[in-house]
């Protein structure tokens, strides 16, 4: 079980259809530990439906989000008054890299350098991570010869 979930008696799990299997496993695991779990499956994660769901939860609940595009629901949950550490995002998600030059977020497979989809800069992800963007900051890669001559 995820670290930090132990303290909740009730947990809301939101998932898209694609990750339902995973969410079900999480539900069972939590239920085995005596927690009550409300599971909500959407075809795809929808911010408006998500907002309605999270805002009407009783106080003191944990929130777990699975799926593609968790960020929208995470942000409405924070606006609805969740403490940021009451929200848990599926950690197996793809890595996101925030281009420091054009702000575009590129999904990357590894920690190696990559080309920004939007501005085509060659970038390198850093350890500077934003939970607001759910992305790592990526810096341009310089070659030794840059700027010389």
């Amino acid at each position: 079980m995820k670290e930090g979930l132990e303290k909740y008696r009730h947990v809301l799990v939101i998932t898209d259809k694609k990750h339902e299997e995973k969410a079900l496993r999480m539900q069972r695991e939590l239920q085995n530990r005596g927690k009550s779990v409300q599971l909500e499956v959407m075809a795809s994660l929808d911010v408006l439906i998500g907002k309605e769901l999270v805002s009407n939860q009783p106080i003191g609940r944990g929130l777990i989000i699975f799926g593609e595009g968790t960020l929208g629901i995470e942000r409405v949950a924070v606006s609805a008054g969740y403490s940021r550490d009451d929200i848990f995002i599926d950690s197996s998600q793809e890595s996101r890299a925030f281009c420091s030059q054009c702000h575009h977020i590129t999904i990357i497979g590894s920690d190696e350098s990559f080309i920004c989809e939007n501005c085509l800069q060659q970038l390198e992800p850093s350890e500077h991570y934003s939970t607001y963007h759910r992305a790592s900051l990526a810096y341009p890669v310089f070659k030794e010869t840059d700027g010389k001559g």
Binding site: S100, Q101, Y139, P140, F142, E144, G147, K148
Partner: peptide
């Protein structure tokens, strides 16, 4: 940082 690729390389000069 957004224009780092322009001014950052000046450090080599």
């Amino acid at each position: 940082l957004e224009t780092y690729s322009d001014w950052g390389k000046l450090r080599y000069n």
